[in-house]
Nucleic acid binder design. Structure first.
Length: 260
DNA sequence: ATGGCTTGGCATCCAAGA
């Protein structure tokens, strides 16, 4: 079973690119971030025509996440618990049934947190705290749980082409990295690093300053697996070539293959 | 380089992204 995450940077602007990638990659589950659309305006038909069930959690203008699945999506949950006043659409979770049992997927768009010194950074950190608490609860269930999306965290210096330029950025702050590490330390496996130690493994290249052409990238899109999901891990990959397509997102898809 | 593109919106400039 192929499970992918991709920050598509606007579903309206990206729908043709998204459909081309879905046809090529054929994921069983796809998790999208930054759909930048309200639920009513999401181009459902263009996705459903390719054989996918679809659940969205959108808002006007920014953010927004979506789950696609060839199997029915069950027990859909929108938002990360822990702050009823949070109106930003950044999390959607659902289950699918397989012959080997249920799998649960959490699709996340973690706050960017820039610029430092504004309310945006503490919002990022508190959002991560809520994600950690929610993940503890899921792990206690001792079932396959896949937490994937745009984490907006550069875990280590090797995950940036030029780590020094990110030193004052929310994505590479010690507390951001510590919270990401705390999530892994709960017992989650970070799949890309489980599959490769290769340097220059990135998932995002800025639109500006020829970042793609210079391979000036960062690795911020991650797939974390609970122990029960890690037991099923066959492999993982990054669809880097998609960044070179016409009308690309600035992120590329990241995927895992699970025996299920 | 002082964010150099790209997106969507109370749009024809602004905010937000990373």
């Amino acid at each position: 079973m192929k499970i992918a995450t991709w920050n598509i940077n606007g579903v309206k602007a990206r729908i043709d690119t998204v459909r081309e990638w879905l046809g090529e990659s054929q994921p069983d589950i796809a998790c999208f971030q930054e759909i930048k659309s309200v639920d009513e305006n999401f181009p459902r038909q263009a996705i459903e025509d390719l054989g996918y069930n679809l659940e969205t959690h959108g808002q006007k203008g920014f953010n927004g996440v979506a789950l696609l699945s060839k199997r029915p999506l069950e027990d859909v949950q929108r938002g990360i618990p822990g702050d009823d006043s949070d109106e930003q659409a950044r999390y959607i979770e659902a289950s699918v049934s397989t012959d080997a049992g249920a799998l649960r997927f959490g699709c996340l768009y973690l706050p960017n947190g820039n610029p430092l010194g504004t309310e945006k950074f503490p919002y990022k950190i508190s959002w991560m705290d809520r994600l950690i608490e929610h993940t503890k609860m899921r792990l206690a269930e001792e079932t396959p749980f896949i937490l994937l999306g745009d984490y907006n965290v550069i875990p280590d210096p090797i995950d940036a082409a030029r780590p020094e330029v990110w030193s004052e950025d929310a994505l590479f702050q010690p507390i951001s990295r510590q919270n990401f590490r705390a999530l892994i330390n709960l017992g989650m496996t970070e799949t890309v690093r489980a599959c490769t130690e290769a340097p220059e493994t990135y998932t995002f290249w800025d639109y500006q300053a020829g970042a793609w052409q210079k391979n000036n990238g960062i690795r911020i899109d991650h797939i974390l697996l609970s122990p029960q999901a890690t037991d099923k891990l066959n492999g993982c990959g990054i669809d880097k070539h998609v960044r070179g397509w016409d009308k690309p997102s600035d992120h590329v898809p990241v995927w895992v293959d699970l025996a299920a």
